[in-house]
Design a protein around this nucleic acid. Sequence first.
DNA 1: TATTACATACCAACCGGTCGGTTTTTTTGT
DNA 2: ACAAAAAAACCGACCGGTTGGTATGTAATA
Lengths: 204, 204
Amino acid sequence: MTNQMRSDGTRARILAAAVERFTHGGYDTTSVADICTAASVSKGAFYHHFPSKQAVFIALLERWLDELDETIRNVAAGGESVPARLSRLAGLVGEVSELGTGRVPMFLEFWRQAAKDPEVWRVTVEPYRRFRAAFASLIGDGIREGSLRAVDPDAAALALVSMGVGLVLQGALDPAEARPADAGEHAVALLLTGLARGGEYDTK
Amino acid sequence: MTNQMRSDGTRARILAAAVERFTHGGYDTTSVADICTAASVSKGAFYHHFPSKQAVFIALLERWLDELDETIRNVAAGGESVPARLSRLAGLVGEVSELGTGRVPMFLEFWRQAAKDPEVWRVTVEPYRRFRAAFASLIGDGIREGSLRAVDPDAAALALVSMGVGLVLQGALDPAEARPADAGEHAVALLLTGLARGGEYDTK
DNA sequence: TATTACATACCAACCGGTCGGTTTTTTTGT
DNA sequence: ACAAAAAAACCGACCGGTTGGTATGTAATA
């Protein structure tokens, strides 16, 4: 086995173990020794690959942000009508929270650290801004296209993202009662009804 | 000064210092010594009033829940029409996030601990359920009263609470760009438009 | 005097990070 | 082609510092 392969493998194991432990117990509670044990890696190997515990956290954050950016691109793209693209979003909320239920604690951890560390803050906040900007632009298109009411695009985008965040969070906290997959689409449809020009909003 | 007064005073100082420190640095990072220093209280006094650090946290949580319950009662009450009461909610979101901006980290801390400790989880989740139930009941009234469209009250309540949570959280994370007080009411109005029977929703 | 409220010194456990040494792969010299 | 040397990956004991919690004693109230 080449040196590169070996290195990449242990690095990946450390990252995977870190996300597992951080998710399970949070950043502060999880010790470097915990991560090492979970990754079947020695402390020496850990500090050979990462300069600090915080560096692992930031690497995780950046990986997550890349995924998020890809999601945004997918949402923004597409030649269909604006309402059709918006309704694709309704499904996205359910999808994200299904896939991400286990991840939400980690995601909460990012926010919590963002309140303390300016570097983490900057890199955490930016995707939300991009998210809102993408939606605002989409909504602006819808207004010009005539399929949406002439609302403030920024406020509407904030509303959409907020509801998404709220749904995912509540779904993670109380999956039995606030299942986003079931009620989430319904909730988003409700908001889209308020956005759509006149009468009911057709999610089909 | 009576013994009771003295005791109550130091207890209150510990609680106040705890919320200040937890808000500033999170649960794990804040040490008992930190709290004691901030409260001008010795460690002995601390452990005389509380059996553990966790106990202080739970006392804080319970105090917060009482406030929340009072808020719910205020929202549910009132003899006005349902749309009027719902629009009062729009203002509430801005209000809560204005008052609570500094508190949000603490609130995040509750959620994070809820993922770990079943006891904390139960007591954290319940108010959200009550919140949703209160809104669902209110929306049900609106539907019977004829002022709201015949939507699923539970889904609509989830939508409202989710948007509120999302707005507060985003406002706390990024106050410069996602000011809930400015755009929050607008966002809720948008949702209410989707709820209201026909045409525009009058927030007046 | 008895009890409650507070103060201080102390401890065992743990944590992030370091460091000297060992194993494994790669490069170099011939 | 092959050994020697260099480099990269890895190991685990160790360290200074901190933490939640305790034990023991003192001052204030009942």
